[in-house]
Simulated scan of single mutants.
Amino acid sequence: MFETAYRKTFTAIHFSLSSVVAVSVALSLCTPGRGQSTSSPHLVQTNLYRTEGLAELPEAPAPQGELAIGSSSSFGEGEAESAGAPARTPRFAPKPLAPLYDKYIEPSQRAQPLTGLTRKLLFGADQIISPYFFVAVVGSASYEQAANGSPNYGTNGGAYGQRLGAAAIRDASQSIFTDGLMPAVFHQDPRYYVRGKSHNAFFRGTYAVSRVFITRTDGGANAPNYSLFAGHAATAILQNAYYPDVNHGAEETAKGFAGSFAGAALSNTVREFFPDLLHLVHLE
Rank of each mutant, 00 (worst) to 15 (best):
A236I: 02
A184Y: 03
Y242I: 02
R34M: 09
G165N: 09
L27M: 14
V185S: 00
I128T: 04
P90R: 02
L29I: 08
N148P: 00
V20F: 15
Q36T: 13
E284I: 07
N200F: 01
G157D: 11
S108E: 09
S73P: 06
S260L: 08
L114H: 05
S18V: 03
V20N: 08
E79R: 13
D126K: 08
F15G: 15
A233C: 10
I13G: 12
H248Q: 12
G249F: 05
P86H: 04
T9K: 13
H232A: 07
T31C: 14
G154D: 14
E144C: 02
L17H: 14
V44F: 03
L29K: 14
T178F: 09
D245W: 12
D126V: 00
A254V: 07
A98I: 00
V209N: 02
S73T: 11
V138G: 13
Y243E: 06
L181Q: 03
L278M: 14
R88M: 12
G157W: 07
G180E: 00
E272M: 01
H42K: 12
S108V: 04
R204H: 08
A68C: 12
Y6P: 01
A60R: 05
K103S: 13
K8L: 11
A167P: 08
V23S: 14
V137K: 02
A62L: 10
G249Q: 02
T4K: 14
A22I: 05
T155N: 06
